[in-house]
Structure formats: structure tokens, C-alpha cells
Simulated scan of single mutants.
Amino acid sequence: MTHPDFTPDLEAIHSIDAVPVILSMVKHLTGMRFAAIARVTEQKWIACAVDDSIDFGLKPGDELVLESTICHEIRQHRNPVIFGRASHHPIFSQHHTPRIYGLESYVSIPIVKANGDFFGTLCAIDSVSADLEDPAIAKTLNLFAQLIAMSLDSQSHLEITRKALVAAQEQGRLREQFVAVLGHDLRTPLSAIRMSADLLESKVEEKRSLSLISAIRNSSTRMGVLIENVLDFARGRMGGGIPVKRQLVDDLGRTVKLTLEEIQASHPRAQIVHSLDIPGGVYCDALRISQLLSNLLGNAVTHGSIATPIRVRVYAEADELVISVTNQGPPIPQALMPLLFEPFTRTEAGQRGEGLGLGLYIAAQITTAHNGNLSVTSTVESGTCFTARFAARFKWV
């Protein structure tokens, strides 16, 4: 029975598809009838793979007494040992290993990994003599041993990479679960803040107090948007995208107008002009479209110039609904363009601004969930324009 400590070694050799071919080639090259790969340590000699035509009796997992083998010595000096006639050899005619196992011919090539660790040996034995004088035989056997070592190294690297990937995935899963739970739990105190602000406003008349209450409400609204963005980010990362519930919406124009009014109320200094030509019967998730527009407008307000208006257009083009938001201001650096729709891009790019850098990511995810796409152009002359478009069924009224 194989010692459990050596099970990984046996599995590693077994998983190398070339091993049976290598052992067969060793027998063919040397004319010997037994070939094996052995794991050799300071205490153990374990057969990992065997090709036996002389009924020597060893099977994968079987063990020989280490001191009875020449591999014990090879592990120390790390040089190949090859002889074709033990009975006439000046050294091995007196060696105990040929005598114990009745060997006349013998080959043992060290298998050494790239980091210098000694794995074991590639062996061949027979009870009859073999012609092993050709230098090409030793050279080919060494190449076979190197091939086995390289395969073992590749397996080790793949296993390390696999474990690192599993660990990273688990860390990511736990992190995203934490974010989702945190975002969900933040909703309760935020609702209490909003309700308290509404209650205070109904009982207070003093102008300064009303101003403070308005500030509380505006801050809680911004916090609510941040929480929803965090939740959507977590849902998207854990569930394969942000979920949408598409249906035929006859009053999408009303939803869009309400969204524009909310953004304008939250950012009174911003100049927002709009052109809406929205048909009835738009197949979409109206709440998600509102969120999409809100995120694009929020980005424009934060990064655009307050001296020029933000232009919003929502219209039908062929069978698509198009939503565009354009603002003036410094153009987006070309190096940042490929990253715009990735989460936390603003933080990674070292840019300042409100929020977590999730707005454009979530806008892109909502567009994708509608089987559409979100694109951007940014120049000094035309400003920065984000355009979302997706196929929709229209019922013109």
C-alpha cells in the first residue's frame, strides 16, 4: 500500500500523458525489458510508473528498500549510472544491488526539477546484458529525464496558479457578499434619516433650520444613490449582470422628465437642456432607464463645465431608443477611455469627484442588459457625449 505522502507524486507522474511512451522508448532504445520512474527521497524508493516485461514484480506505488538500490547513491551525487554487463564491470561486479536483484544491465538517470529539487530516477533493468556503449543512448535517456522534470514543473506551476485563482475568487466572492449585505443594511438607517427630515420640515418654520433640513435631505438622497450603486455592483458581479425586467412602457417620457427634474433639483447650479421624442410602447425596464440617465447626468454634472449647458436627447432611431448626454469641459484622456466602463475607474485614475466611480459601470451594465451598448466620444470641439442605444418595440401614438 502506497504511503499517503507519495500519492501526489504518483498522481503527478500518472497525469503526464507521455510517460507510457517514454518508458516504452527506454526499453526499445536500450533493449532492456523493464523500465520505471521512481520517486527517491532520503528514506524511500517508490515506483511511480512501470513498464515490466520480465515479471520483476513492481507496480506503481510499490516500494523497494532504499539502501538496496543504486538510486540511493545517485540521489547524492546526481550523476547517471549506466552499465550493460555488471559481471564484468570494475565497480558494479562487486556492488550489492546487481547481486540482490540479479541484474546484469542497468540504467538510472536522475530527474531533477528546475529549482534543483531531486525528484527521483528514470530506470531500466534486465537480468541479461545489454549493449549500452553508444553515447546517443545516454544522451537520449537524459533528454527523457529532462522531459519528465519539465512536465512535473509545469504541473507544479499550474497547481500554484489554480490555487491562487481559487483563493482570489473566494476572496472576491466574500468581498462582494460583504458589500451587498452592507449596502442592504444601510438602507434602514437612511430611511429613518429621510423620514426624520420630512417630519422636521413639517414642524419647523425658521429659515436657517429649513435650510439645514434641505441639506440633510439632499445628502441622504446622494447617499441613497451611492448605496443603490453599490448594491447593483454587487448584484452584477455575483449574479452575472444587473437584472432588468423589460416590459412595454407607454409613459417612458414621463419617467425621463421626472428623472431630469430630480437631477436638476439636486444640482440647482447645473444647466440642463433636453430634447425628448419618445414613442409609446418602449420595451424596457423604466426604472433602470431612469437609473441609466441619472448616472450619465450625474457624471456630466460632476465632470462637466457649469458654465455651459448639459444637453440631453432621448429619441427613437429606426428600431432603437437612443439616450445621449453631452457636456462641455476638458476632454477625457485617451488612456482612460478603454477603462471608463470598468468599476472604480475614477479612483484608479487618481481623479477627484463625488461617488465611487460606479456610475458609468452601472450605466453600461443596464444598457447591456437591454441588449444594447453604451459608447463615448470626447473632443475639445464637441465636448464629451455618452450615447446609450438599444433595440425597442415602439407603439407610435
Rank of each mutant, 00 (worst) to 15 (best):
S15L: 06
D17R: 05
P20S: 04
V21H: 07
G31Y: 09
A35T: 10
A36L: 10
A38V: 07
Q43M: 03
W45N: 07
I46V: 15
G57A: 13
R78S: 02
N79F: 03
G84W: 00
S108N: 12
I109K: 00
T121W: 01
D131L: 06
I137Y: 02
A138I: 09
L143P: 01
Q146P: 00
M150K: 04
D153K: 04
S154L: 09
H157M: 10
E159F: 04
T161D: 11
R162N: 12
A167Y: 08
L174D: 09
E176R: 10
V179N: 12
V181E: 12
H184D: 13
R194K: 07
V204W: 06
R217P: 04
N218H: 03
V225C: 05
L231S: 11
F233R: 13
A234V: 02
M238L: 09
G240E: 15
I242E: 11
K257N: 06
E262P: 05
I272K: 11
I272Y: 06
G280R: 07
Y283T: 15
C284N: 12
Q291R: 10
P309S: 12
M337T: 01
P343M: 09
F344A: 05
E348M: 05
Q351E: 01
G353T: 09
G355P: 08
A363E: 01
A364M: 08
T367D: 00
N371L: 03
S382K: 01
T387N: 00
R389Q: 12
